[in-house]
């Protein structure tokens, strides 16, 4: 009875995982003959300034994404877990970005951030009318913001669920001791959310390593190579330059970095991912 699931999953998910390692050792243009390459692709990728820049951009994007998303979703999640009467309405509306495809979000922000016809002209705000996506110094920050628009709702949900798990008695006891809201936040809410913070941050980090659709439609990696992060570099190398072997090297780097980060974060904090799953 387990056979269909095993066959499908094995063939299209497990086999490719080994396949990508094998393909990193061959020359292949995606259509023609496959020939042995040894470690040529690895050497080529390591020496390629574009790929090295992509790796650096991915690290930068990941750090910026976590710095932006983690505090915002933590504060929103904690707030939404409270007793405000309108918070159910807010929570319903906060969810909406999760319904849109990355392609839809990217298209919307391309139009909205247009320097001539976008939101800048609507609000008559000079600073909003910059060439957001055309300026190599700004584009990466715009990408970080739009990714946050897509994923902060999801992490807010996680924090909201996590905050609801905190026993009320802790707050009541601390109020007896005269603790104010700020003290309660730092001495009860934050420590009690430790595992939630680990889970959410791990997901943000691993997610940031693999963002593709959104950046692909929003900037295509540009202007120049200003937003050509690792997954994008992999796609463009494989399916635009037809160097599948070299692209496989980049894919493997993605997997290894992703696994290392999620194992590392869990090891450092001693938290298990299963804890957070049972919260849901």
């Amino acid at each position: 009875m387990a056979a269909p699931a095993l066959i499908l999953f094995g063939f299209f998910a497990i086999v490719p995982l080994f396949g990508v390692a094998a393909l990193s050792l061959v020359h292949w243009d995606g259509l023609g003959e496959i020939s042995w390459a040894g470690f040529d692709n690895w050497k080529a990728a390591a020496a390629d300034p574009v790929s090295r820049n992509a790796l650096w951009l991915t690290v930068k994007l990941t750090v910026l994404c976590v710095l932006f998303q983690a505090p915002v979703s933590l504060l929103l999640g904690v707030f939404l877990a409270g007793a405000q009467r309108y918070r159910a309405l807010l929570a319903t509306l906060f969810f909406l970005p999760l319904l849109f495809s990355s392609a839809a979000v990217a298209i919307t922000f391309t139009a909205l951030l247009d320097p001539n016809f976008g939101a800048g002209t609507a609000l008559d705000a000079e600073w909003l009318s910059q060439n957001w996506l055309g300026d190599p110094d700004l584009a990466l920050y715009v990408v970080v913001f739009v990714i946050g628009w897509c994923f902060i709702p999801f992490h807010t949900l996680i924090y909201q669920a996590g905050t609801r798990q905190i026993p009320r008695e802790l707050y009541e006891a601390s109020r007896m001791d005269g603790a104010g809201p700020v003290a309660q936040f730092f001495h009860i809410t934050l420590p009690m959310l430790k595992y939630t913070i680990v889970t959410s941050t791990t997901l943000m980090t691993v997610g940031s390593l693999t963002y593709f659709d959104l950046i692909f439609v929003l900037t295509g990696g540009g202007p120049g190579n200003a937003t050509r992060v690792l997954p994008l570099d992999m796609y463009l190398t494989g399916f635009r330059s037809y160097e599948m072997g070299k692209a496989s090297v980049l894919a493997l780097v993605l997997v290894v970095v992703g696994l290392a980060v999620s194992l590392g974060l869990n090891r450092i904090t001693g938290a298990s991912r299963m804890d957070s799953r049972s919260e849901a």
Partner: peptide, 17 residues
């Protein structure tokens, strides 16, 4: 373990298959 496999990492072999 399978949950941790990103689609991006498998896409080239999937294309081949």
């Amino acid at each position: 373990l399978g949950i941790a496999i990103p689609i991006q990492a498998a896409i080239i072999p999937v294309y081949y298959l």
